[in-house]
Structures are given as structure tokens and as C-alpha cells.
Write a protein that binds this DNA or RNA. Sequence first.
DNA 1: CGACTTTATCGAACCGGTTCGATGGCCATC
DNA 2: GATGGCCATCGAACCGGTTCGATAAAGTCG
Lengths: 335, 335
Amino acid sequence: MPTIRDVARIAEVSVSTVSLAFSSPGRVSARTLERIRSAAAAVGYVADPLAQSLARGRSRMIGFVVGNVGNPFFGDIRRELENYALEHEHFVLITDSSGKTDRERDLIEHLIGLKIAGLALAPSSFGPDYVKFVESIKVPMVCFDQKVAGIERDFVGSDNFLAGAMLTEHLLQLGHRRIAFIAGPQHMHTASERYRGFVETMASAGVEVNPNYVVDGQFTRSAGYEAAMRLLIQPERPTAILGANNAVALAALQAMQELGFSCPDDISLAMIDNVQWSSVITPRITMVVQDTLQLGNIIARRLLHRITDPDANSEPPQDFVLAPKFVPGNSCRRI
Amino acid sequence: MPTIRDVARIAEVSVSTVSLAFSSPGRVSARTLERIRSAAAAVGYVADPLAQSLARGRSRMIGFVVGNVGNPFFGDIRRELENYALEHEHFVLITDSSGKTDRERDLIEHLIGLKIAGLALAPSSFGPDYVKFVESIKVPMVCFDQKVAGIERDFVGSDNFLAGAMLTEHLLQLGHRRIAFIAGPQHMHTASERYRGFVETMASAGVEVNPNYVVDGQFTRSAGYEAAMRLLIQPERPTAILGANNAVALAALQAMQELGFSCPDDISLAMIDNVQWSSVITPRITMVVQDTLQLGNIIARRLLHRITDPDANSEPPQDFVLAPKFVPGNSCRRI
DNA sequence: CGACTTTATCGAACCGGTTCGATGGCCATC
DNA sequence: GATGGCCATCGAACCGGTTCGATAAAGTCG
């Protein structure tokens, strides 16, 4: 690999001039620039990004940290960010914390060690220690998905209250009153907001929520399955189940199938968030989906803005909250 | 951030001794080691990975390059690699080429610029230029999923011929003779092997393959959908469809549903490769799945072996081919 | 006890860039 | 024609580590 000194020797200029020629070509005379360029081309010189990062104290890499890169929700966002970053000559490093806070912390520290230019983070936790940690990160960053109280950073996400409210309203319109809710972990903002959307919409309609109809599915498949089973073995079963995310809702569908209940004939089902191949799942589940492309786009623009605009770090953090979209299926029956 | 010179000053030793103390503690006297350690702890010294990589000419990072990190197949492999790498103090950088060869090339070059210790690559292409490029990569590497003719590297994958043969045999056993095959791109090793498994098993059973029953689904959802439609509008429809991967098979299921055919009553369906939430798709599709955990494990061990063992690069490349597993569903009817 | 090996430590060069203050040539101004 | 400002270029220091040959002290052997 040729180095900058090789180029300098061939072009018969100093090393610093070569460096200058590449970083700000305007400040080098046309003749010298030409000599340097052809010398570089002759030996196939490419600047070593590692050495550049070390000297500059920052790289052109962006860290992307989520709990599960396999989740299509994050996948769409990632793709948007990658494409936008590439247009601005930045490079996305994807990492996966598996939802573990410790690992997330390690990953972020490692990325900062790599002198990343920016960070897109889907927070995996909450609480004072966590907030303190995130606040200690000096790198330009955008948080998304999970709004964490106390973190004063740009945030991009969906209106989860509305998501819960829309589906509840839909079920009420169809005549359902015995509506069950499989909730997520209440310390998560998305989960508590979705739940609040459910509860308040029920209250507005004057329908009482049966405490036995609210179960905790932890946003996971296994807990969702157990929670659904608890709902389905009750003597007075709900007529509709609202899953706070895709995993618990599909787990509920599986539980119904295994117990021999038909959806929607016996029990209606609705869920928040899309899932891959939802169109071939029978029945097609009525759902509210997030505009992942738009979310990804906003995250990308905001982050690149903070990275490239020198006086952007004086701008106060801002929240971007998008409305989700209702996608009717055939999993909800009128009663 | 404290540097190695701060530590040296406080511990009253030279910089090189501090460096030595961390890289090979055995070569420093116990008393000095202690002084250095407490000095480092006092100021919270952590070595800068960037500077280390620059000086050493290699980092402790492993590149993971695939066409679609959202694919659960790659997700399982990635997780295994991450866990194993972490145990050996290595760190996985995930990148996604979106299946584009140009981008894959850029990503790999960028990773090499980062002086990665090793590379796990799911090749996205084939042909002389591609082979030449991959062969030019000096970093320890393991290829997986797609076997590319001409690339002399470790390879880890499944027996795709067997996968095609197993499902074909299963359908034949159930009495099917009019079996259709939605193929993948024939230049891909996985696709051609699966197809070969189908054709040769049919031949062994003395059953002729109707040319109209072999269509190209490109391994994608959209092409698979069109291919399935071409099958379903024929006057003499097949009694069973074998999808060469999950995308084309599920696209076929969707096509059947849209045309009002029942699976398996009207047409049986089988596929190669699992899909997330396959248990809630009705009917549960009979399939042959790859042992992703085992694949990931072998990839991880092999790669780390090549990275850590100094004389591993003299070992010849080796192929690891695993047998896939048959998972019965209820999408295939006896006729 | 002197010669030889081993051990602990150090200084300097190096990895491959960036950056800033200094230098000298050139042109415009009064 | 001396003064001042601008422009192109350079040298040296720096980013934060690693590594190797040198050196001096300590240990081993006959």
C-alpha cells in the first residue's frame, strides 16, 4: 500500500501539501494539484481511514445500535440511513445488542473508541443510570423508537398512544365490548403509551376494562403466548384481543389455533406493528403500522445535519413524532 | 481521555514499559506491573483501539457481510458469530450490501481499510471478476451460504442438493406426480443444487418433469409471485408446488389464496428454508430447514481459528457441508 | 571470581495521516 | 522603492499507540 509520503516523493512536494491537496484542493495551485493527483493515481494511493481518524479525532462512520437488527422495523430504518449516509460519504456500522443493556453499553463505547461521527440509537433501557450514560455521550446522536424520559436528545418515533387508540376505536365500532389487551413492559414508553391509548379510548366510550383482560406479554413471543393462554382459558372469554406488538399478537394467534378457536369467528385479533409476510398469514391481521421509511428518512437527515453542520450542536434537541397508519385485515368480526 | 503517556508518567516508567505491561504482563516485573496497573486505574486509562490498530496493522474487529441482515437465516448465524467472537474478545461489525455486488465491494474495502482481523462473507455474486476480487482479499476469511466456484476459501453451508431431493421424495411418497418447481437464479450454487436435487430425484423415480412446471422465481417475492401465477393458470395444474426458497414458496401461497385455491386440498406446497412465524402461517408449510445455529457455530470457530492461530493460514481451505432437516407441516396432502 | 546468559527497562523509530505556524516569493499600494 | 498583504508551500509537532535493538543490572555456570 502506497502512503502519502510516496505520493509526496513522486510529485516532488512535501507531505503536508499532499494532505492539503486532498482535503482542500482550492488552496493548492493548479499545477501542483495536477502533479499530486497524477502521482496518486500512478501508485494507486488511497488515504488510510484509520490514520485519518486518529489524526482528525473523528471518522466518517456512523454507529447504528439496536436490540435486534433482524426486526424488519429496524431493517427499514437501517436501509434508509445507509442510503442517505452513503450519499454524504458516510458509512454505517451496524451493531446488535440483543436487547441487553450491558452489551449495548459495550458496543457504544467501542464505537466511540472508533471515533464515530454520529450515533443512531434505539434505547434498550431506562432509569437514572441509563439516562446518565446516554447523556454522557458526546457524539452527535439521534434516538429513535423508544422515547426515554430524561434523555435530552433528538428523538424520532411514532405516536404510540394514537396507535393503541385507533385499534381500540376500531374494535369498539365493530361492537366489541369484551376487549382484551396483551401489554408490553410498562417501563417502555412505546408499551405504556399504547396501553394508555387503549385504556383512555375505552374510558371515552364508557366501556369498563375487565382487569382480567389485561395481561402482560413483555413484547416477546413466549410471554405473549402464556399471556394469551391465560386469556383464552377464562370462562368468560374476551371477544377481541389487541396485541401491543406483533410478537404478542402472533403468539396469541398461535395460542388460539392450538386451542381450536377460530379467528375471527370466535375471537377477533388486532395488533400494532407489521410483520414480514403478514399477507400470507391467515387471517390477515388488522393492524396499525409505523411509517418506517419516513422514520428512517428523518433519522438520517437529522443525524447527518448534526454531523455536518458545525453549529448544529447548539440547536436544542427536538422530537419528531409520526402518526401511524391503519391497515385493515380480516381478523376482526362485527358482533 | 488519559493516554499511555499519562500512565507512564504517574507510574514513573517509560511508555514502552506500559505498553508491554498490557500486551504481555509476564515480561514485566511484578512490582512494576502493579504500579502501572494502579496508575492506569487511577486515571481510568483505556487504550485507544484506533491507535492500536494503526500501530499493529490489525484490529480486533470482524467484518460480517451479507446481502440482507434482516433475513432470519443470516440473523441466527450473526448471533452465533457475535457471541463466539465476544468470548474471544473480538467485535463484529455488521454490514449489509442489499445484494448489490458494487456495494459489497465497497463495504469489504472499507472494512479492510479498518484493518479487520477477519471476514465472514456470504458471497453475492460469481464469475471471474468476482472470484478474482475475493481471492485478492488477504484477511483471514470464511465464506458461507453460497458456494462460488473458483473461490479457494473455507466454506460453510448446507447440502442443497439433499434439501431439494428430500422434499421431492416426500411429495413422490404422497403420490404426487405433477410436481412443479419454482427455481432460483441458476448461477447461484444453492439454487442450482436445489434444482438438481429435484430433477434427479424425479428421474430416479421414473417420473417425467413437465417443462411447464419449472418456473423461475429468482428467489424473490415478486418474481416468485409471477412464477406461481404462471403455474396456477395452466389448464392442467400441478398437484404440488415445491418452492426453492421461502420467499417464492410464500409468494406461491399468496397467489393460491388470491385465486381461491386451497392449500393443501387443491394444491400441496413445500419449501426450502424456514421463515419467521412459520408456525402461525396457515397451513403450516412442510419444509426443509438449515441448521443455522450449527452453521453459525462452525463459521465462528473456523474464522477465529484462522485469526488467532498464527500458522492457520497455511492450512488449506476446507468445506463444511451440513445436512438440512425435514420439518413436516400440513401443507402436503396424500393423493 | 570472571565470562556468559537472562531479565527488566528504556529510547527511538514507526504506523499514516493532519494541522499550524513559519517562510519566501509575488503583486498592489502610497 | 520601501511597506504591507496574500498565496503557495513547507517543516515540525502531533494523534496514541507498538516494536525492536540497546543497555544495564541480576542471575548462572565452570
